[in-house]
């Protein structure tokens, strides 16, 4: 889902950058108020893991591959959509500048889609779903699917505004491919939360229902 430079004209790319910077500012504010010494290793390790997962393009049939985004994972584990904004922004900066994955001018749009939209959709859908089905891992999986699918649709809309994709075929293609990628995203998100709950339940946000022992 990393938008390359060529896909968005500069004036529009600038607007997405401005939105991204506003959310990054809020994410830094979140880090300043919520951070404690113990959470720093967890956030850093989550970021390193998300970087690794994003480099792994999994085949999803139909001549297409996809990798995980990790926005829902970061937001659920750390209990804030701003955690996703913070982590995904830094991961996207490293990917863009060092590995040419995602453009520089379009980085704002990528931060908006994967960090902001992915983080907020992942976090709030998890909060809503867990109230209904009371199962941490299933709720996280569904939230992660949504946090992959909805940003893909947002990306298709941005592509349509940019004049790069026609709207409906863009929505259909992006939606279809990411609906499948999202299934893998859901499974991996649930598994990672399970592993973290085994290793360090004390570091996981209490709203997840993971019991601290």
């Amino acid at each position: 889902m990393h938008i390359p430079d060529a896909f968005i004209p500069l004036p529009q790319a600038a607007i997405y950058w401005i939105i991204a910077i506003i959310f990054l500012g809020l994410a830094i504010k979140w880090a300043r108020s919520e951070l404690n010494e113990d959470k720093i290793p967890l956030i850093a390790v989550l970021a390193a893991g998300i970087f690794a997962l994003q480099s792994f393009n999994l085949p999803v049939s139909m001549g297409t591959s996809g990798h995980l985004v990790g926005g829902a994972l970061a937001a659920i584990v750390l209990g804030s959509p701003f955690a996703a904004v913070f982590i995904l922004t830094l991961v996207l900066i490293i990917q863009g500048f060092i590995f040419g994955d995602g453009g520089i001018t379009t980085m704002g749009a990528n931060i908006l889609n994967m960090g902001v939209i992915g983080g907020f959709v992942g976090y709030y859908s998890f909060q809503a779903i867990i109230r209904i089905i009371k199962n941490t891992y299933l709720s996280a999986a569904v939230a992660a699917w949504l946090a992959c699918f909805i940003p893909a649709l947002a990306c298709a809309v941005e592509m349509a505004i940019a004049g790069t994709f026609p709207l409906v075929p863009g929505l259909v293609a992006m939606g279809l491919y990411h609906a499948i990628i999202g299934v893998i995203e859901g499974i991996v998100t649930a598994v990672v939360i399970y592993l973290l709950a085994m290793a360090r339940p004390d570091l996981i946000d209490s709203d997840t229902g993971v019991v601290t022992t």
Partner: peptide
């Protein structure tokens, strides 16, 4: 996978 990702494929 060497296939293009979701966005490139789209």
């Amino acid at each position: 996978s060497g296939d293009p990702d979701g966005l490139e494929s789209s």
